[in-house]
Design a protein around this nucleic acid. Structure first.
Length: 604
RNA sequence: GGGGACGUGGUGUAGCGGUUAGCAUAUCGGCCUGUCAAGCCGGAGGUCGCGGGUUCAAAUCCCGUCGUCCCCGCCA
């Protein structure tokens, strides 16, 4: 080894030892005849002191050093003089008096400061191009380490519970259900393509049929869809499947794992255990979304029936068209400026809401308990009766000083609009405790939803998800009413995982495919192997997949999963470090019998 | 496929119709033996992503384009 100790381990008790350290020059403080070097490696920072009187040769080398040079230093551990300890550093009690100093590697001036403690952030495209330098910086180094610890914990937890870790293929078969596949051409089968796995779903079910009973994998998954802060084209899931279980068994296992994981690796406090469980319908009613952030209240309320017959056209028309009128209460929002309220209205528009109706309560109710016009600040109050206003105020739970915000539209506009408005208000009003981990389960999802574009029913989860036992009888007659044996685990408003009990009978699986509008030949071609496998003794089984990046991001307080990935891609799916994707040689295309229809338009 | 924001020395930014394009930091040189965001002095470095247009005059206004970020759609 080129070093005897790391830069994070020397203490006062090591005083007097001769040590050799190696690492990067984090900073150099040059006082002329006395030079301090902060030497950094993955484990910490140690101050090296080079003194002209003792070691003129070492000082000569030290004065040549620049940031990020890689150096090896031999010297003597010494207690720092009283008063010069650095409490910020784990090694701050000591310094190493350099005897010999060798440059292992010189370094160009990096494009951004590696050692910076300040949060002046660099443009992300620069960080991505020089990702190997960004990863040297404390924040990302810490995130990668945390990710490692989380994955290590998960593995250990599952090993202890008789799970087998099994790798499944990356080259799989494309299926039209679900997300767009990344496809991979085959040289040996021109015109035929593999697909990269969106998840190892089918393989893990086949492993259950193979009698593995308890499988997991830290699995790379690929989806060729547009990116977001929480979505990358390739990402990692804890993929897990168990035989002879019911939903509650999978949920209990994951809940125990997440509780222990949080206790071990996070300073944050879990808001509630056991994790609250809510139905999909309740989540939508109260939060407008199936992944609620329950660190704060601000639950939505529904006044559709109350205002159905009101003279206010916006409400009346929305209700008559089958829509809903829902709202929420902005605590102490009644005194917001018109500009702020307009800002909230603008906030809601991308979600399709045409606007926000609002009622500010500027004074308490009168003797009869009603709110006359003079106690309200609202452009819509004049269209509503005292009784209707009273009803809205009661439903909202608002009091003096609060602002009621209402959206009237189809449920699939109203709910997302209010769900996002709720988060915005939660932030503006500082209602979110960043030290909380608010886990919850969402269950009783619908199994199917109608896709108007394709004019058919599609699986909300995936086509292998089982209906609840009592709902199989209505699969064909009332598909929209069928509930799935599915469960999502949500943390602070992020969906961190989802799973289900699967269909394990070929007859039921066939019914499901038929309900999804697949012809017999399509089923045979795409899923025949699954149906056949189910005929050889398939155990009841179910499982779950957790998004590793999302989980780590939440523990790391990262706003984007890119912050917890070593080499993420940009919003257009580009890798700025490798400059991928890129054109390939004509020779490669010829081998694959592939012709590119149009010239690549991408800038060189 | 759509909407929005941003793009000025290496980095972070100010300037938003006429400025020798300012500041901070990094960088380079000098001085300096107790610093830890070291300090002090001095220097170099940008033509404002790219292309076109408007104007007497464009970093500044307009159009297009490229790139990054956020969002809608999409993501079983």
């Amino acid at each position: 080894m080129l070093k005897t100790h790391t830069c994070g381990e020397l203490r006062a008790s090591d005083t007097g030892k001769t040590v050799t350290l190696a690492g990067w020059v984090n900073r150099r403080r040059d006082h002329g005849g006395l030079i301090f070097l902060d030497l950094r490696d993955r484990f910490g920072i140690t101050q090296i002191t080079v003194n002209a009187e003792d070691r003129p040769d070492a000082l000569a080398v030290a004065s040549q050093l620049r940031s990020e040079y890689v150096v090896q230093i031999t010297g003597t551990v010494q207690k720092r003089p009283p008063g010069f300890e650095n409490l910020e550093l784990a090694t701050g009690e000591i310094e190493v008096i350099a005897v010999n100093l060798e440059i292992l590697s010189e370094a160009r001036t990096p494009p951004f400061v590696i050692s910076g403690t300040q949060s002046d952030d660099v443009d992300e495209s620069v960080r991505l191009k020089y990702r190997y330098l960004d990863l040297r910086r404390p924040k990302l180094a810490r995130n990668l380490r945390l990710r490692h610890e989380i994955v290590r914990f998960i593995r250990s937890f599952l090993y202890d519970r008789a799970f087998l870790e099994i790798e499944t293929p990356i080259l799989l078969k494309s299926t039209p259900e679900g997300a767009r596949d990344f496809i991979v051409p085959s040289r040996m089968h021109p015109g035929h393509f593999y697909a990269l796995p969106q998840s190892p779903q089918q393989m893990k079910q086949l492993l259950m049929i193979a009698g593995i009973e308890r499988y997991f994998q830290i699995a790379r998954c690929f989806r060729d869809e547009d990116l977001r802060a929480d979505r990358q084209p390739e990402f990692t899931q804890l993929d897990l499947e168990m035989s002879f279980v019911e939903a509650a068994d999978v949920m209990a296992l994951i809940e125990e794992m997440l509780i222990k994981l949080s206790a071990t690796l996070s300073d944050k406090r879990i808001q509630q255990t056991p994790f609250p469980v809510m139905s999909y319908a309740d989540a939508l009613a109260k939060y407008g979304i199936d992944r609620p952030d329950i660190r704060f209240g601000l639950e939505l309320f529904d006044v559709t029936e109350l205002v159905r017959g009101s003279g206010f056209g916006v409400f009346e028309n929305a209700a008559a068209a089958g829509g809903v009128i829902k709202g929420l209460c902005y605590p102490n929002g009644a005194s917001l400026s018109r500009k702020d309220i307009d800002g909230l209205i603008e906030y809601v528009k991308p979600y399709g809401a045409k606007g926000l109706a609002w009622i500010g309560i500027t004074a308490g109710p009168d003797a009869s308990g009603r709110y006359p016009a003079e106690s309200l600040r609202s452009p819509i109050a004049k269209f509503l009766s005292l009784q209707e206003i009273d009803g809205i105020v009661r439903a909202s739970g608002a009091g003096e000083g609060d602002l009621i915000l209402l959206v009237a539209d189809d449920a699939d506009v109203t709910n997302p609009a209010l769900a996002n408005l709720r988060l915005e208000i939660g932030q503006r009003a500082d209602l979110i405790d960043p030290h909380l981990l608010a886990f919850c389960w969402v269950i009783d999802f619908p199994l199917l939803e109608y896709d108007g574009q394709e004019d058919r029913w599609v699986a909300i989860h995936h086509p292998f998800t089982s209906a609840r036992d009592e709902d199989w009888s209505i699969l064909e007659e009332r598909p929209g009413d069928v509930k799935a044996k599915a469960y999502d685990v949500v943390l602070n408003g992020w969906e961190i995982g989802g799973g289900s009990i699967r269909i394990h009978r070929s007859g039921q699986q066939m019914r499901m495919f038929q309900q999804l509008g697949l012809s017999e030949s399509e089923v045979d071609e795409q899923f025949g192997h699954m149906l056949e496998a189910f005929q050889y003794g398939a155990p009841p089984h179910g499982g779950i997949a957790l998004g590793i990046e999302r989980l780590v991001a939440l523990y790391a307080d990262a706003q984007s999963i890119r912050e917890v990935m070593a080499f993420p891609k940009t919003a257009t799916g580009a890798d700025l470090l490798l400059d991928a994707p890129s054109p390939v040689e004509d020779r490669q295309l010829a081998e694959l019998r592939i012709a590119v229809r149009e010239q690549p338009t991408r800038a060189a």
